[in-house]
């Protein structure tokens, strides 16, 4: 279990992917290791562990955070969404669907983080420009796609969502 020796634990209550949890986490434990090792949510990836690459991105109260450098203890009372929670109803979101049709996934390591930051963007800015999308992606590194397919998928998903909302 995460949480180094000599670390006292602290009790937290939070909501993850619409489920309530009460957990005892280590004082220096990160949200990422809590999600992966205590809740078996392996969507958020562990890569740099320095807050630089975005592979571990999840949404906290709707906003993207690097879970690898976020203290689990400070998520008390918060609502967290991981990539597993996107298709909560069993159906892919418009964004996920667009990733499939645009082949925006290659090795897939960055995908969970990229999907989360773009989910937040589309919530915030329903009709984003290409520059908006690229700016939102600044903190999620993809070494495979060159980003083009990801950007196109995001713009396409935005239009689909706008059409769905107005029809």
């Amino acid at each position: 279990m995460p949480g180094a020796a000599g670390e006292q634990s602290v009790s937290i209550r939070l909501i993850v992917n619409e489920r309530r949890h009460q957990l005892d986490v280590g004082a220096g434990e990160t949200l990422l290791s809590m999600l992966r090792e205590r809740l078996s949510l392996l969507g958020p990836k562990e890569a740099c562990c320095e807050g630089e690459c975005g592979a571990c991105t999840v949404l906290m109260d709707g906003a993207p955070v690097a879970s690898c450098i976020l203290a689990a203890g400070s998520t008390n009372g918060r609502t967290v969404l991981t990539v597993e929670g996107l298709a909560g109803t069993g159906e892919l979101t418009a964004l996920q669907q667009a990733f499939v049709s645009h082949a925006a996934v290659q090795c897939g390591y960055c995908t969970p983080g990229v999907l989360m930051v773009l989910t937040a963007l589309l919530e915030d800015t329903p009709d984003p420009s290409e520059a908006d999308v690229r700016r939102a992606l600044a903190g999620t590194i993809c070494r495979c796609t060159g980003y083009q397919q990801i950007v196109e998928a995001a713009l396409d998903a935005a239009q689909l969502m706008i059409r769905a909302a107005t029809s």
Partner: peptide, 27 residues
Amino acid sequence: ILAGGTDVMPQHLRGEQSPAALIDISG
């Protein structure tokens, strides 16, 4: 003091800082 933790947590994880207590003021 722990607020957003974007400096404190990486320093802790790298072993550069080992305070006896993190005082979480974020709430």
